[in-house]
C-alpha cells in the first residue's frame, strides 16, 4: 500500500472482527500443556530404556496404544490431538513392571481411558487418574504378573534381552523363565533390608519401568513446575508429609522403618507425586486444596507401606485422594474479595 492512502478502510481491508473481551490471550493452551508433559517424559522414558532395555519401550508403547486406540474409538472426534490420552498411556506404561505381557499393558491402557475417562465424559470430567485406575485394575486382575519384577539392571546379562515374557499370546499366561528380582520396598517390607539411597536415586534397582530413576523424574518435574504446568504445592506437600511421617517412624525404630530419604526415592513416589498426583483434572483446583490433597497422599502412602498388606501404596493413596477431590474442592472454596473475616488462611492479608 502506498503512503498516500489515508483512508483506513482501504489500507488493509479489515474485515472487522467482533470479540468479547479480553482481546488478548495467554500463550498456554490445553494441548500445549499436555504435549509439554509428554515431552518432559522423554528423559524418563530414555532412563527406563537404559535400565530395562527394549522391554521398557514395548510396554510403554503397548499401554499407549491401548489408551490412544480406545480414545480414538469411543472419544469425541479429534480428542487425540489434545494429547491427554497419550499421557495416560505413557504414564501407565511407566508404572508397569518391564516384564508384563504386552496384551496386559494394552488392556490397562484401554481400561484406564474407557472406564477412567470416557465414561465420565472425556477430558476434564474424570474423577480418577485414568493411568492409575488402569494400573489398579491390572493390579487387581493380574496380581501375580504385576508383582513379578525383573532383576535389577546389574543382574541382566545383556541390555537387549527382554525382561520377561513380553510377547505372550493375548490372554495367555506369561512363561516364567525370566530373571526376577525384588523391589527395594519389597526387600524392606518382607526382609527388612534397606537399599542404598544412591542406587535408588540413579535407578539401578528393580521396579516399574519408569519409576526407578528418581533424580531424572525429579528434574523433569521441576521443569514442569517451573513452567506452571503442574501445581508445585502437590509434590512438595507429598514429599513433606512422607518425609516427616516416615522420619518420625524411623526415629522410633530405625531397624524396622526406613529412612525418609529411602521413603522418598523408593517405589513410585517420585513418579506418582510429580506426574500422577499433579494431573490437573483429578487434583483440587484450589491451592489450599492442593496442600490438603498432597498431605493426604503422603500420609496414606506411609500408612499403606507400613501397615498395609502391600509394599507399595502410592497408587492407592492417589486414587483414594482423587475420590476426595470433589469434596476437598467444596471445602476449600476461596473467600471472595471484600468478605474479610471469613477468609481462609490462604487469602490472609500478606
Amino acid at each position: 500500500m502506498s503512503e498516500a492512502t489515508r483512508d483506513p478502510i482501504s489500507a488493509g481491508d479489515p474485515l472487522l472482527q467482533l470479540r468479547a473481551s479480553p482481546h488478548l490471550k495467554a500463550p498456554d493452551s490445553t494441548p500445549k500443556i499436555m504435549w509439554n508433559v509428554v515431552g518432559s517424559l522423554i528423559p524418563v522414558i530414555a532412563a527406563a530404556t537404559w535400565y530395562f532395555g527394549p522391554s521398557a519401550l514395548l510396554v510403554i508403547g503397548a499401554a499407549t496404544l491401548g489408551a490412544v486406540l480406545t480414545e480414538r474409538a469411543f472419544g469425541t472426534p479429534g480428542s487425540l490431538a489434545d494429547g491427554s490420552a497419550a499421557i495416560t498411556g505413557i504414564l501407565l506404561g511407566l508404572c508397569l513392571p518391564a516384564g508384563v505381557p504386552l496384551w496386559i499393558a494394552f488392556i490397562g491402557g484401554a481400561f484406564g481411558i474407557g472406564f477412567g475417562k470416557l465414561v465420565f465424559g472425556g477430558l476434564g470430567q474424570n474423577v480418577f487418574n485414568p493411568a492409575l485406575l488402569g494400573r489398579a485394575f491390572l493390579q487387581a486382575a493380574f496380581p501375580a504378573v504385576m508383582t513379578t519384577w525383573p532383576g535389577s539392571p546389574g543382574e541382566i546379562p545383556s541390555w537387549s534381552q527382554l525382561r520377561g515374557d513380553n510377547l505372550a499370546i493375548p490372554f495367555a499366561s506369561p512363561s516364567t523363565d525370566a530373571v526376577t528380582g525384588a523391589t527395594p520396598l519389597g526387600l524392606m517390607k518382607f526382609e527388612s533390608t534397606p537399599t542404598d539411597v544412591t542406587r535408588l536415586m540413579i535407578g539401578d534397582i528393580s521396579g516399574s519401568v519408569g519409576e526407578t530413576a528418581g533424580v531424572v523424574i525429579l528434574l523433569c518435574g521441576i521443569y514442569l513446575a517451573a513452567r506452571n504446568y503442574l501445581n508445585w504445592r502437590i509434590p512438595v506437600s507429598i514429599f513433606a508429609a512422607v518425609a516427616l511421617f516416615s522420619g518420625i517412624l524411623h526415629l522410633l525404630d530405625p531397624a524396622r522403618f526406613a529412612s525418609p530419604l529411602f521413603a522418598l526415592f523408593s517405589g513410585g513416589l517420585m513418579l506418582g507425586a510429580l506426574y500422577m498426583a499433579t494431573d490437573m483434572v483429578t487434583s483440587p483446583v484450589t491451592n489450599a486444596g492442593a496442600w490438603i490433597f498432597g498431605i493426604g497422599i503422603g500420609i496414606l502412602v506411609v500408612v499403606i507401606r507400613t501397615w498395609g498388606g502391600l509394599p507399595e501404596g502410592v497408587m492407592y493413596a492417589i486414587l483414594l485422594m482423587n475420590a476426595l477431590v470433589p469434596f476437598i474442592n467444596r471445602a476449600t472454596q476461596p473467600r471472595p474479595y471484600g468478605s474479610r473475616g471469613r477468609r481462609a488462611g490462604r487469602e490472609a492479608p500478606a
Binding site: F137, A140, A141, F142, V145, F171, A172, S173
Partner: peptide, 9 residues
C-alpha cells in the same frame, strides 16, 4: 490352562 485369569472379576 494357559489362560491368565482376570482375578479382579
Amino acid at each position: 490352562d494357559s489362560f491368565e485369569p482376570w482375578i479382579i472379576m
